[in-house]
Amino acid sequence: MGLVENGKLPKPLTALLNVSRKYSLWVYQWGLACCAIEMGAAFGSPRYDVMRLGVIPFPASPRQADLVVVSGTVTDKMAPAVKRLYEQMPDPKYVISMGSCANCGGPYWDSYSVTKGVDQIIPVDVYVPGCPPRPEALLEGIVLLQERIRSEDMGERRNGDPIVVS
């Protein structure tokens, strides 16, 4: 939607589009380590049930996804794949970095093979701290992201600070 990206849409239409986008986030699960299981619990288990938030966790490929959750340790060997994944996603796209490893390297902050934070490779919208974060924390991150999407002006996208779940 070129108009959306240009930010030249009339206000009511923007609001309508934003609400629609907010409740139909297709999320790609980029599960890497321990956090992947908590992400699986949040997205796949009946107890946490992410679909009630209007998030659909089943895109077959990143090309169909609006949101990617990078959950777990990103290693230097994996980093090119993460970058490529992000480039494959269509705009507007959002990134949630889940867990200490993806945020900053976490317990492997001094390792020779771990990338110290996925934000070195791709821009991150929401940081969810924890090792691993509980599923509720991830859901909170998604809710906060939806809040942002609702009032988002495409023209000013990327100018805001990332959200940190606390």
Binding site: W109, D110, S111, Y112, S113, K116
Partner: peptide
């Protein structure tokens, strides 16, 4: 990496 003379450079910085 597992040779003892291979330094963990991240520790040098911080």
């Amino acid at each position: 990496p597992l040779r003892k003379d291979y330094p963990l450079l991240a520790r040098r910085i911080k």
